[in-house]
Design a protein around this nucleic acid. Sequence first.
DNA 1: TCTAAATTTATAATAATTCTAAACAAGGGA
DNA 2: TCCCTTGTTTAGAATTATTATAAATTTAGA
Lengths: 132, 132
Amino acid sequence: MKLNLTMQRKAVLEVLQHAHDHPTAADVMDRLRAQGNVFAYGTVYNSLRYLTEVGLVKELKLGEAASRYDAKMEDHHHVVCTRCGRVDEVTIELPAEWLGKAAQETNYELHHASVVLEGVCSSCSVQNSPSK
Amino acid sequence: MKLNLTMQRKAVLEVLQHAHDHPTAADVMDRLRAQGNVFAYGTVYNSLRYLTEVGLVKELKLGEAASRYDAKMEDHHHVVCTRCGRVDEVTIELPAEWLGKAAQETNYELHHASVVLEGVCSSCSVQNSPSK
DNA sequence: TCTAAATTTATAATAATTCTAAACAAGGGA
DNA sequence: TCCCTTGTTTAGAATTATTATAAATTTAGA
């Protein structure tokens, strides 16, 4: 099964590779449009699915409505700012020891771990606390 | 602001308290129906939101389409079986040291951490490996 | 070149959830 | 008690993200 990168798939991949954030499918669509590539919605979703399947991008489900996509393939975790919604990356790895304990507790054969942290990012915490 | 537990909210809460799994809104709806409580969908969602806001239940976003709800309030993490979709709990806590490093790396003020592990549960791994 | 398979497209469909407006209920004064 | 305000439930419409469908198009291989 060899890689079949059509021009639309290539364009989607490039958007993700040049992004320094974590765009949703709609974001990807917008950025393609901005550069003159008008594809059908289905094509963008299809491309994202294809690229995910062949392992060129990763789908992030961070508990928001929409999935985000990421071309950076090293395994990493994420922090979401509860004030502004910004998402940043956490590159340090979960201690193997902790994963071992979790596997033992649950009796699962673990394949993957994903941590979503929540907090307030530095720019939001500079502004005075919310009134609420 | 005092607690306002209407009978529908109470019924929803009770379903969650008696559940030993992690029901979705639709599951809650079904269980209510099964016991003769037919509420509007909006009401179930409303109740779940209210109960979450006052801190009696927790909304779990595990990367599936639908949110799951849980009346168990101690903080804990989850494992999802990639074969059968079953969800189990992980009660061990993330090492504070790791969280500290994450806070340092990201420069966030962290409030909450949620880990979603993926793997194969014991009953699925007993059955011979999938053909795929 | 011809054919079969894969892909794109536009659009319809689905699933989970929220919104809306009307009807209802409850509680606190006058 | 009656009235009024406020909050809640209800049914159904609306929204959002995503997937499915079917026709048209492209691609690759014989």
